[in-house]
Amino acid sequence: MHTEDLFTSRPEEASGFDENDRNASKSASRKGSEPSWNGDLLFALSNLVIKDFKVRYRNMSLGVFWSLLNPLVLMGVLTFVFTKVTRSNSAPHFPAFVMCGLVPFNFFSIGWTSGTTSLVENAALIKRVPIPREIVPLAAVLSNCLHLLIQIFLLIVLVLASGLPITVSWLWLPYLWAMEVVFVCGLSLVSSAVNVYVRDTRYLVESINTVMFWAVPVVYSFSVIPPVYAEIYKLNPLAALILAMRDILLEGHAPRWELLVKLTLVAALTFTFGLAVFQRLKRRFYDHL
C-alpha cells in the first residue's frame, strides 16, 4: 500500500506510521470529489436564491416590474396579431387564454436557461468552495419562482377581469405549478451538468425553447391540432400543463386525472433522472470548469 518513491518523503517518518495508518483508513477517505460539507442545506440554498434574485434586480430601475411588463407586452402583441391581423384564433377571452400559455412557458424557458448556465457561471464557487454542487442549479431555477408568482398574480387578475368565476378546481393550481418547478429543476440538473463538459448545451437549450413556444399550445388551442399529432402533444409535459391551466381557469373544471398522473410521473421521473445524471457527472466538474 505504501510504495516508497524517490520523490516521496513523509514528515514524522518515525512516528509509528503503520499503527496510525489503520485509523486513518477507517476515517473519511476521500475517493470522490464530494466535499465533506455538513452545513445547513436549506439555509445555503435560500441564500443562493436570494443572491441570484438580488443581483438580477438590483441594477434595474424598474426592478421586479419587468416580470409584469414583459408578459403583458407579449400578450398584447399576440392578441393583436391573432385576433385583429390574422383573426385565426377565435378563442373567447383571448388575453387570458394566451396568458395561460405564456406564464408556464416563461417560467419553463427562463428557469431552464438560467439553470443550464448556472454551473459555468458559478465556476469560481464550484472550484473554490466545497458546497454540494446540486444546490447551484437548483438555486438558479428557484430564484425564478418570485418571477413566476408575480406572473401568476397577473394571470389571475386577467382571468377575473375577463369575468370568469373562481371555482373549487383552482385548488389544483399550486400543485400544477409545484410540478412544473420540479420538472424544470430535473431538466436543469441534467443540462447544467452536461453544459460543464459541452458548452454548446446552452445554445441547444435556447433553440429547444424557441421551438417549444410554437410546439406547445400557447397561441392556439389544443382542439385545432390534427388528431395525428394530438398524441405526441400529450407526451409533452409543458403542453399538458398549459392544457390543465386552461381547463381550470377558463373552463372552470378540474383537469382530467390521467393528465395529472402523467404530469406528476414525468416531473418525479425527470427529477430523479436529473439527480442520477448529476451524481455521475459532478465528479469531474473541477477539471472542466
Partner: peptide, 27 residues
C-alpha cells in the same frame, strides 16, 4: 485537500470541518 477535486491516484483523508480560503472572495 478541500475535496474540490478528487485524486487520480492515492488517497486523501481529512478529519474535521474544513474552512478553505482558496481565493479572495470566491463566494
Amino acid at each position: 485537500v478541500a475535496g474540490l477535486c478528487r485524486p487520480d491516484q492515492g488517497y486523501v483523508s481529512v478529519n474535521g470541518r474544513v474552512a478553505a480560503l482558496l481565493e479572495i472572495g470566491s463566494g
